[in-house]
Design a protein around this nucleic acid. Structure first.
Lengths: 339, 339
DNA sequence: CTGTTAGCGCGTTCAT
DNA sequence: ATGAACGCGCTAACAG
């Protein structure tokens, strides 16, 4: 790669000092009009652009914000990134995306690489591995140093920093409520393992709605799925209950789509025999047949909010107290629950 | 944000010079064991990490690669990024993702921000706006300066740089061939507008397969869809042909899913009356009913390949000639074409 | 064993 | 109107 042109080279070319060139290019009227024009023409011709590394070092500011997410091949997360990007760009920041791949070690490594001058602040959604290990030292370290940090979606309440979360309890609640309203009595819940907080919270909402309706939650109807294992096999068990459910509430789109597929294979009519409802994270819900009713999550908004909180933190336009922004969900009702 | 600790501060603390500290921390045996240990302990306690900006400036190397994609909320592109990330990380690079949002101006702006020291190389998939404008000055500029550049998927053959593309012609060909093999006679093609190269190339493959089978391509059966307009409306026209098609070949998953949805609404049986086939870019194909046969694109591999070419370029382990890597597709046959 | 100096590229203050 | 000097944080060659 060819060397880019620098102030130094231009200075040498004109036999003047570096600072003269610097001033000329900034249109300082300290420099004579004639020289200024010549320098500018020359710089222009060689397409001079100040080296941003040097600027960043000098200004102690990179205008880059780091983002660490568990995985990117996931509609929800890419939506969030989109939101972050849009807001950040508007404010003159660039975005550096890293993947933890759900691994504790990679999350730690990423933070350690990023938070050493390359970025002004960090937005993270915590990896499963970290949640499982329940080890948050790397975040505490950042917080101790007052490093601007925002957590979103997968957060840990013990950490003292800004957070943006989905109203998972509310989402679970209104989902279950909707299923009850259309006359369901036995609602099966397809959720994640306990250590995954979003799944756990949605379950809380579900439980609340059931209790509110005077129904007991039968734990036999709660299925804690393991993403590492075959989902089809695990979900088939739903249909081996003594009394088949008349509705299925899944905490994500994939679970819902699979459940519906199996139900149809077993000859159940959707939504008449069994209504199915999921949490949206992609486009699947729209194209299943029947299309899936789902709790929409507003990832884009979440990204924007996260970026906003972070940039306020970076630019000291936020108060000392930390914000916990809750993004409310809403229900997109489609055919899978219309009866 | 608290100031991080620097060599200078440590040096002041011990009343020694900066370079002494630097050496001590690097375990140089130029420094006495005692002092070395004390300095290391101190640095460790204050969690010293060299400022990477300073290192980058000094070494003239950032170990960051930039990626500019048209949009991130798109399964195909996020798969590619995943591939880039994985390969890059393996090689010790970080990834900076920017979005052009399909706009020429944003693409230019992004390049101008990135290619000034912050990154060692760039991977780009060209924005629609740029293709439409047919203006590639910003890339030519980079190439003139020998800046490491790799284009993927949406490329321009006139640009002298490494490229990674999908075998779109081959994909279109084998898709059409498959439809012919199952006995289709009138295959409608749902493609994009002409300036979008991937759509155009897939059409070439389709045409080739048709000719190969001794069939004429009836332009009435070719629909060039505009993503900016309502897709349902545009696709409905397919069913207003005098003779309805007995197969539909769509250049992406969404077109295919919508076509199938409309076909079913109109009472056609899939695949018996009409077979439907798409190019995969997401998970939709798996969950439609019937599931969609599709041409799979191997985005992850594409990302890896792109990163590999780029890093070879950066590290001068590539020859002078530019590579054009072609990733071949393969057909995932599902129920929508089983008859 | 330790320190001085120079340089990466830039902007700014203070002299001249 | 122009330039020297300094600092951002770090490393490496060289000096002592």
């Amino acid at each position: 790669m060819k060397q880019r042109i620098t102030l130094k080279k231009i200075a040498r070319e004109f036999g003047v000092s570096i600072s003269t060139v610097s001033k000329a290019l900034k249109n300082s009227n300290e420099i004579s009009g004639e020289l200024r024009d010549k320098i500018k023409a020359f710089a222009d011709y060689y397409n001079y652009k100040p080296n941003s590394l040097a600027l960043q070092l000098r200004n102690q500011k990179t205008s880059v914000i780091g983002v660490i997410i568990p995985e990117i091949v996931h509609h929800f997360f890419s939506t969030v990134i989109d939101g972050i990007e849009v807001y950040a760009n508007e404010k003159g920041y660039n975005v550096m995306v890293c993947l933890s791949n759900e691994s504790f070690e990679k999350e730690v490594a990423n933070i350690s690489v990023l938070a050493n001058g390359t970025i002004d602040g960090l937005i993270v959604s915590i990896a499963r591995g970290t949640q499982k290990k329940d080890n948050y030292h790397h975040f505490e370290e950042l917080i101790k140093e007052d490093f601007p940090l925002v957590l979103f979606d997968r957060v840990n309440d013990a950490l003292k920093c800004d957070k943006v979360i989905i109203d998972d309890i509310g989402g679970g609640y209104s989902a279950a409520e909707h299923l009850l309203e259309i006359g369901s009595k036995r609602i099966a819940l397809l959720t994640t393992q306990d250590f995954i907080t979003v799944g756990a919270l949605r379950k809380v909402g579900y439980r609340k709605a059931m209790q509110n309706a005077g129904l007991d939650v039968d734990e036999d109807y709660v299925f804690k799925l393991d993403d590492a294992e075959d989902l089809y096999e695990q979900i088939e068990k739903v249909f081996e209950l003594e009394q088949a459910p008349d509705a299925i509430l899944a905490v994500n789109e994939i679970y819902a789509a699979i459940a519906m597929k199996i139900a149809k294979e077993k000859g159940y009519k959707i939504p008449d025999d069994i209504a199915v409802l999921g949490f949206t994270s992609g486009l699947i819900s729209e194209f299943t047949s029947p299309p899936l009713t789902s709790v929409v999550q507003h990832g884009f908004l979440m990204g924007q909010k996260s970026a906003e909180l972070l940039i306020n933190r970076i630019e000291h336009t936020a108060g000392k107290e930390y914000h916990k922004e809750v993004i409310s969900t809403n229900l997109k009702i489609r055919e899978s629950t219309k009866r």
